[in-house]
């Protein structure tokens, strides 16, 4: 049972990533809009030269851009299933619903992480932040933050497949829920970017917090995904 769960999860994630590998539609549009968001912030905040606020600004911009571009990935990866009613075929297939959820979660997270690499470099350049001071911690926080955001996002964008005014609703529903993740991730990142920070104690705290949040969100997502997608 668990063996087939992982097999189906990898199958679905692999399918989405292969489609993406051929068209690169999501990666390019996401990467471009991510770059634009960072640029917009850097123009809007160009007068804020207070060095003490530098790390906080850089971390905030990084995570705000991640959230905005994450919705693009969510909308596109789930939207593909709407074309030609592919979602119906997917739901009729022997794959357990939880595996569909896990597969989509994996695909969206990997796409977001790929774009985040670009984002980190851009933020490092434009906000002159020490982004690579603690690469291991940064990777861990990026991974956990992305997982937490995508875990809720996949549920909502799957539910929105059958609903009107999808684009407007996705942001309205997702951002309030994602606030704890955003807060924890940007605090941890700000501490890492700050060369004056005495130690990484807060980072360790926020990582534990993110871990707990991710576990809760993913469990809840696995639990509600089935009734949400299979409803009338």
């Amino acid at each position: 049972m668990t063996g087939s769960f992982w097999r189906y999860t990898l199958l679905i994630a692999g399918k989405d990533l292969r489609i993406e590998g051929k068209s690169r539609e999501v990666l390019y549009t996401m990467g471009f809009s991510a770059a634009l968001v960072v640029l917009v912030f850097s123009f809007a905040l160009s007068n804020a030269t207070d060095p003490a606020q530098g790390p906080i600004t850089a971390a905030g911009v990084l995570w705000a851009a991640t959230l905005f571009t994450g919705t693009v990935a969510l909308a596109r990866v789930l939207d593909r299933e709407r074309e030609n009613e592919a979602i119906r075929a997917l739901l009729l297939s022997p794959a357990p619903r939880a595996a569909i959820y896990a597969g989509k979660l994996l695909a969206v997270s990997l796409l977001m992480l790929a774009v985040e690499v670009v984002l980190v470099v851009l933020v490092g350049l434009l906000f002159s932040a020490e982004v690579f001071a603690h690469p291991g911690w940064l990777a861990l926080v990026l991974l956990l933050g992305t997982l937490g955001f995508a875990a809720t996002g996949v549920v909502f964008s799957a539910a929105l497949l059958r609903s009107r005014s999808r684009e407007a609703l996705l942001g309205a529903l997702l951002f309030p829920i994602a606030i704890p993740v955003l807060l924890a991730a940007s605090r941890a990142t700000a501490c890492m970017f700050d060369p004056l920070a005495p130690d990484l104690e807060p980072v360790a705290f926020w990582v534990r917090f993110l871990l707990a949040t991710d576990v809760i969100y993913i469990l809840l997502g696995l639990w509600v995904f089935e009734p949400v997608v299979s409803g009338e």
Partner: peptide
């Protein structure tokens, strides 16, 4: 959200 937004809203309430 139309009639199909009901499941969505319910998921939102849980989250």
């Amino acid at each position: 959200g139309g009639p199909s937004a009901r499941q969505l809203a319910a998921a939102l309430a849980l989250f």
